[in-house]
């Protein structure tokens, strides 16, 4: 099974779980594939900026992200499912973001 078929199969499985409307077309599959590759490559590039903190940390983080991404692929349909219009999901991520920001500014500025 090549990568395209593998991703298509996973998209179908996730789409069945979420009761998403409409058939899976070539356009939708290639869109997800593009988004997937973009997501992984941009995250890897972003993580590589950890070189400014510590080079060893950067190597570990890049390898970790790479293996996680390969094991959890495809990520994009899952992200799309998480970032839906449900108020409950949006509230959850809002609270999570607030917690991260306050921790960064409050704890981070006093302890780092």
């Amino acid at each position: 099974m090549n990568l395209y078929d593998f991703i298509l199969k996973r998209i179908k499985a996730i789409q069945e779980k979420t009761d998403a409307e409409g058939p899976i077309t070539n356009i939708s599959a290639s869109s997800v594939l593009t988004a997937e590759i973009t997501l992984i490559s941009t995250i890897l590039l972003a993580v590589s900026m950890l070189r400014l903190v510590n080079k060893s940390l950067m190597i570990v983080a890049v390898l970790l992200v790479l293996f996680t991404a390969i094991l959890a692929m495809p990520l994009m349909p899952r992200i799309k499912r998480e970032l839906n219009d449900s108020l409950a999901y949006m509230m959850f991520y809002m609270i999570l973001a607030l917690a991260i920001i306050i921790t960064l500014f409050y704890w981070g500025s006093l302890n780092v």
């Binding site: 939708s28 997501l39 970032l83 960064l104 500014f105």
Partner: peptide, 28 residues
């Protein structure tokens, strides 16, 4: 003057770019 202020702006912007554009390509 806070070390995290610019970092947070950069981080949030990066997330916005990546999520915004990768979500956009999947929309019908």
């Amino acid at each position: 003057y806070l070390p995290f202020s610019k970092l947070v702006i950069l981080g949030v912007s990066l997330v916005a770019m990546i999520l915004g554009i990768t979500m956009a390509i999947q929309q019908t």
